[in-house]
């Protein structure tokens, strides 16, 4: 089996396990919608203000729900002792990493698409435009690569999942900031010229962060 197919197998296992229990999907989804509703109240009634605040609120929502989603992967396995079993199988550490990143990415994107729909409804702003979707996918990718690495790390510490946001949010903050600025440009109807520096920034960070996380992951789950 090639590397890719092994990773996909791990990703499939994760996704199926999730679909079977549905424990996290439901909780994260409800949480995400609640966050959007709360933000709706904090933004007030003024359409102008809402328009201005929307990109930031959107990405704040994604950051919170993304952090929540990331915690599920390793915590569940730690509780059930599955990690040792997974590591003893012929798949290498890197395969586990890529598989988990893919499944986390899928999970987060599903939540985000639903969130975008809810956002459009509640905020009266059309956020489903293609450029914004592209930004969302790219930024979520960066989120997933670093987040998966650190969720594996934090599951093994004394404070468990609580440590996760402290660890990885500062590191992905540039990606989040770029996503917010880029989204601002899209929602304001600006052309490609305004969007491209942020776009490039997200791409650059994604590239470097994913490679570094990939290389470093084996050190997180070694015995």
């Amino acid at each position: 089996m090639s590397f890719l197919s092994k990773s996909l197998a791990v990703a499939r296992k994760e996704t199926i396990a999730e679909l079977r229990t549905r424990e996290m999907v439901f909780a994260v989804l409800v949480f995400t919608i609640l966050v959007i509703v709360i933000f709706n109240f904090t933004a007030g009634v003024d359409q102008e203000v809402i328009r201005a605040a929307a990109p930031g609120l959107l990405w704040a929502t994604f950051s919170f729900s993304g952090t929540l989603s990331l915690n599920r992967t390793f915590v569940r396995e730690k509780e059930n002792g599955c990690l040792e079993g997974l590591m003893s199988c012929p798949a290498s550490r890197e395969v586990i990493y890529v598989g988990k990143v893919l499944s986390n990415l899928l999970f987060m994107l599903v939540i985000e698409i639903i969130a975008l729909l809810v956002f459009t409804l509640l905020f009266n702003i059309y956020v489903l435009s293609p450029p914004l979707l592209v930004i969302t996918v790219l930024a979520t990718f960066g989120f997933a690569t670093v987040g998966t690495l650190f969720s594996g790390l934090s599951a093994n510490t004394k404070a468990r999942e609580m440590v996760l946001p402290i660890l990885f949010l500062p590191i992905v903050l540039p990606v989040i900031i770029a996503a917010v600025r880029g989204s601002e440009q899209v929602l304001a109807g600006k052309s490609w010229a305004g969007l491209s520096p942020w776009f490039q920034l997200i791409l650059a960070f994604d590239a470097v962060l994913s490679v570094v996380s990939f290389l470093v992951f084996p050190y997180v789950i070694e015995e």
Binding site: L149, P170, I171, L173, P174, F205
Partner: peptide, 22 residues
């Protein structure tokens, strides 16, 4: 928050490396 010294060193190194990207 590491559960033992060796883990603290190892995990710290991970943060040291990934954090440097920024």
């Amino acid at each position: 928050y590491a559960s033992e010294k060796q883990q603290g060193a190892r995990f710290g190194a991970v943060v040291g490396i990934v954090g440097f990207v920024d």
